[in-house]
Design a protein around this nucleic acid. Structure first.
Length: 413
RNA sequence: GGGGGUGUGCUUGAGCGGUCAAAAAGGGCAGACUGUAAAUCUGUUGGCAAUGCCUACGGCGGUUCGAAUCCGUCCGCCCCCA
């Protein structure tokens, strides 16, 4: 394990860190246990979560032992950050279920569930806490005037944002997590997004105060795309790791479609390619950079969905955009009964029904603006009726805009 | 607890009691140009059985022929005082 820390740094994972020299030495001289938390608010992780996941994977490959935590204990309270909506209370069962799905996804990247690494729910120790004892044993170590200096809180206080006492306490709970993990598993490093820095430091402090031991924290930069958007978001919503929510093909396309300026950074973050290769690919220009994007897309898809799916997505993409025919098999498909088609379906309805537009009005606009195609023929009037006469090989190929395809086949709908 | 503000569409943010589905910008979508990129230009951007109807300006109630605009109340947020 030669200088794992530098490797992480080189790939761009390091934003802030408790102590560079100590951590660097710790990583190269010892086998340590480290952890990062994942929120079980949804039943799938999304592309944004890949940063911590990849960092954890690098460390595991370097011989260290990961613990993935899901915030079962904190999520039951509801996340107060989103103050515009009623706190969404998620049931314990839902969290349990979400956690299970998330675990499955993590296992594609990490070896969990045995001695090489494991997965815990912080509900295990948080739910049984006694308030008075907690205040006495843990609360006494926190100074409010220190806490409000933490960047996250300060911003909330300075801006026009509320900060509930509940939310203020997240820091204590998270710090307590760290303490428990240190005590039970000798965990000495916490990873997280840069917004977690304050909470991570709180944990580091707590361990020092109670156990007198020095533990570490490391944060990742919060990734945005060159366009300034949040990483992993598209018009259609988040890019999920769950293949039912975001198909491997869509996942692949997300990476293919990124901004040129993000290529090198993303290759470093989201693939395991050696940095020499990353830099070479990142320096390609003009047409060639598409090759770099293809590598990124393929590698990222392979990690998330496996080689078979990645190969399929790549073929589909090449076929669709490389000039050849389209790969119909990997395309989202809707089945419509023969009778319905025989009686004719208004084009607007069809586009809306298969999900290419979110409303019929949107379908109308799409059509009127020339973005609607059936079997690669443009239709610009909304009164077109699609019926069996338009079938080609018993199917219809719908297209919205340049890139979104949908196939309609006949069958028992 | 007292006083003063404020709450608008995906976001920021205008909005005289009628002409407000609501200015403007950003974002999104589509078209042109391209490299499945960026930049630029054009159009578009609540929904629907669509020259009309429904829903929407924090929640509820009221005044009015008529309210995002006035009043009451509740809730959230901000500032000052305690």
């Amino acid at each position: 394990m030669s200088n794992l820390f530098e490797a992480l740094q080189e790939r761009g994972f390091v934003q802030q860190c408790t102590n560079v020299e100590q951590l660097s030495r710790l990583l190269s001289e010892n086998q340590i246990t480290y952890y990062a938390g994942f929120d079980p608010t949804a039943d799938s992780l999304h592309a944004g979560s890949l940063v911590p996941i990849m960092a954890m994977a690098h460390l595991q490959r370097g011989g260290h032992k990961p613990i993935a935590i899901i915030g079962g204990g904190t999520t039951v309270i509801g996340d107060p950050t989103d103050k515009t909506e009623m706190r969404s209370m998620i049931s314990a069962q839902q969290i349990e279920k979400n956690g299970a799905s998330i675990l499955q996804q993590l296992q594609r990247y990490l070896d969990l569930g045995n001695t090489a690494g494991f997965f815990l729910n912080n509900a295990e120790w948080l739910l049984s806490l006694n308030y008075i004892e907690f205040l006495r044993d843990i609360g006494k170590h926190f100074r409010v005037n220190e806490m409000i200096k933490a960047e996250g809180y300060r911003q909330r206080l300075e801006r026009e944002m509320g900060l509930s006492f509940l939310e203020f306490n997240y820091q204590l709970l998270q710090a307590y997590d760290y303490l428990c993990l240190f005590q039970k598993y000798d965990c000495v490093l916490q990873l997280g997004g840069d917004d977690q820095w304050g909470n991570i430091l709180a944990g580091v402090d707590l361990v020092r105060r109670i156990e007198g031991k020095r533990v570490h924290g490391l944060t990742f930069p919060l990734l945005t795309t060159a366009g300034g958007a949040k990483m992993g978001k598209t018009a259609g919503g988040a890019v999920w790791l769950d293949s039912d929510k975001t198909s491997p093909y869509q996942f692949y396309q997300y990476w293919i479609n990124i901004d040129d300026r993000d290529v090198e950074r993303f290759l470093a973050f989201f693939t395991f390619l050696p940095m020499d290769e990353v830099r070479r690919l990142g320096s390609l220009e003009h047409d060639e950079i598409r090759e770099a994007k293809a590598v990124l897309a393929y590698q990222a898809t392979k990690l998330a969905h496996g080689k078979v799916e990645a190969d399929k997505a790549q073929e589909t993409s090449r076929a669709a955009f490389g000039g050849g025919g389209l790969d119909l098999n990997a395309m989202p498909t809707t089945t419509i009964s023969t009778e319905r088609l025989d009686s004719g379906i208004p084009i607007m309805e069809l586009f809306h029904e298969v999900g290419l537009t979110t409303s019929k009005s949107e379908a109308r606009r799409l059509i009127q603006q020339g973005g609607a195609y059936v079997n690669e023929k443009q239709y610009k009037t909304i009164d077109v009726i699609i019926d069996a006469d338009l079938l080609e090989e018993d199917a219809l190929l719908l297209r919205a805009g340049k890139k979104r395809y949908h196939r309609v086949v006949l069958g028992e709908a």
